[in-house]
Computed example of a mutant assay.
Amino acid sequence: MTTIRQHADEYLAMRRRLGFKLTSFGEKLMSFVSYLEHTGATVLTAEAALTWATSTPRSTDQVHWSRRLMAVRIFARHLKALEPATEVPPDDALPHHYRRITPHLFTPAELAALLQATGELRPSFRAHTWHTLLGLLAVTGLRTSEACGLDRTDVDLTDGLLTVRDTKFGKSRQVPVHASTTAALRKYARDRDCQRPAPSTAAFLVSTRGTRLDSHNIPHTFAKLLETADITAGQSRRRPRMHDLRHTFATTTLLNWYRDGADVQAKLPLLTTYLGHADPKSTYWYLSGSPELLALAAARLEHSFGGRP
């Protein structure tokens, strides 16, 4: 007889083969499986799922509870086809709340101050690496992990083309960059090769030790740069993150399209592909991230209906 843990392991392995990372989802699901084993349960029930989802002494946040239960619900739908006794937790078992953190949208002045702050880092090569990293994130909207994951062979300095491999959804894509960006990357590459003539890594961006930048270890330096640049929490009341550079790029792109009178709906799939989103709805979310974008979108909609209420 196959246990729930075995079913869960097989389910996660199948999903990962399809390109899903499942980092937080996998952690939640296996935590629930451990809970079932601890209670001696051999069948997944809605009652057990709800009890586990709300048994979080460190958090009474219903959004957190709902997301925990959702992980179980998704797996339960799969498991029920294999084990008919499985109960799928009902959709209304917990209130549905979807809350996405409001991003910090960097102003041009803040971006300039942030890049200038990298000059305070020592040694000078570290400063150059950070200046290149932040500049690349700002003008391409790459995820931090994608920029750190670039190999030298992924950066075409002749045609100005980046190849981003093994992205968030297990796919690869090509990202064309402006000539000015290519020039900046070429300048960094010369400095890097001078500093590290015998590289120990294939990475394009390297640390002062000659190793690949670790996207999990760089928030600390970014926090120092924010302090140096005197950039504080904005309307979101939360310290800006490096990921907000991606939000800023996407929002700025949409704003420019609206201001230029472009057909945003027709062009949106291009931005979706460029950013490496799984589907357009992830890109549509940026429309709600800026009051100015919302106003422009509303004005465009009102115009399309001839100004009628």
Rank of each mutant, 00 (worst) to 15 (best):
D191P: 00
M70C: 11
T181I: 04
T51H: 10
D279V: 03
M14V: 06
L79F: 10
S66E: 13
P89E: 05
T248G: 06
D154F: 07
Y188N: 07
H78S: 10
A113I: 02
P89V: 03
V63S: 14
P269S: 07
H243M: 09
H277K: 07
L121C: 05
P123G: 09
H277L: 04
D263E: 09
L213C: 07
R246S: 01
F75M: 09
F169M: 02
Q116K: 14
Y286E: 01
V264I: 15
S124I: 11
D244C: 11
D92A: 13
V177F: 15
T86S: 06
D193P: 01
R241K: 13
E110N: 07
E227W: 03
L111N: 07
A112Y: 07
T3F: 04
R73L: 04
E27G: 11
D191Y: 12
T248S: 12
R165Q: 14
A184E: 09
T140S: 13
P123A: 09
D151C: 06
E37S: 05
F75Q: 05
P219V: 08
L157I: 09
A295L: 09
A179L: 11
S290F: 03
W285T: 03
H247Q: 04
A46L: 05
Y286G: 00
L94P: 00
D214L: 04
H38A: 15
I231M: 05
S290V: 00
R196S: 07
R73N: 03
T54N: 04
E27M: 09
A127Y: 03
T252K: 00
A202H: 10
P108V: 02
T86H: 09
V33S: 02
D166Q: 15
R237G: 07
V63R: 12
V63D: 12
L294H: 02
F32P: 00
F204C: 08
R17C: 12
R190L: 15
A262Q: 14
H277F: 02
D159G: 12
K224W: 10
M14D: 13
R239I: 05
S124M: 08
S59Y: 06
H64W: 05
I4Y: 02
T208N: 08
S200P: 00
T248V: 06
A233S: 14
A250R: 02
E302W: 09
L18K: 12
E27I: 04
M70Q: 14
P103W: 11
K224R: 15
A223H: 14
L137Y: 03
Q265M: 08
A262D: 15
T253L: 06
T102K: 10
A13P: 01
D214G: 07
L94T: 05
H38L: 12
E37I: 00
I218D: 04
T208E: 13
R77A: 08
S31C: 09
S215H: 15
F169W: 13
T158I: 13
R68D: 09
A117N: 02
R68Q: 15
R192K: 12
T201V: 07
A189N: 13
L296K: 00
D92H: 13
T253A: 09
L114V: 03
L136R: 01
I4P: 02
H178R: 14
A223E: 10
P123S: 08
R100F: 03
K224Y: 08
A179M: 05
